[in-house]
Amino acid sequence: MKLQTRKRIATLGVLSPPVLWALIFLFIPYLIMFTYSFYLKKFPTFEPAFQFGNYAQLVTDAQYYQVLFRTAKISIMVGLFSVLLGYPFAYFLVFKIKSDRVRAMLYMAVIVPLWVSYLLRAYTWKTILGSEGILNSFLVWSGILDAPTDIFLYNQFSMVVTLTYIYVPFIVMPAYASLEKIPRSLIEASKDLGVRPLRTFWSITLPLSSPGIAAGMTIAFCLTFGDFIAPALVGGPNGFMIANVLTSQFGAALNWPLGAALSIVTLLIVLTIISLSDTLQRSGKLELE
């Protein structure tokens, strides 16, 4: 048998199971979803059609575009707050901790919560922020409040807190990786030239670690954008996000075509953000070289 033929057969053997899987369970489902997004709703199901009514409804019906805006707003806030907490922490680990062991332990300490059930961690915030919850009972017990307040739970505040809590580790990881890569000599050179520590940070450290920040923010943004648990657990009536609308379209509201259109829009938004962040990170990397 020719060497080329032999290689081709081996390639086919390795390749066909994953390719078939990707076709059946990823490509075809997405394709079906795409087709549905042009169908017409007809209670209790839908009928095939080719029309843009579902997309039009997303843009014209305030109920839907407001949810999109709200989801985007909350995702951006979560991204920002996660960076505000996660980046300084990563900076602290890389530049202020002298012992490798302590650094590794603190890094692990940030990663470990990721392994602990996401659902349970979100649930705990519900028990902390609720009107009978721990925060309220603490505030009443200590005399700061006269009576429990319900301002902590079931609103956008509680969602941002919960989601930030969940995504901080996702910022620390890439931020740490990019800060660690910065040659110490660059920072020392800057100090040597008499540049103040804060200026050094602004003009050297921050720009060079921006790819890490961008990567982390993208993850936090995208995961928040599609999150389904936090809004349902700690979000109130004004905390509905896209995932919840999707759930109801494919559930109680039984409007599959509209749900499909919303899925496609979500998919496009997330993919756009990712490719934008990719180009940003790539250009950032070029600067380092």
Partner: peptide, 18 residues
């Protein structure tokens, strides 16, 4: 790699469709 970036809800719904 799509499911790592896409909301899990969408993965779930599209497979439900299938």
């Amino acid at each position: 790699l799509m499911p790592i970036a896409l909301p899990g809800v969408i993965t779930g719904i599209s497979m439900l469709n299938l």
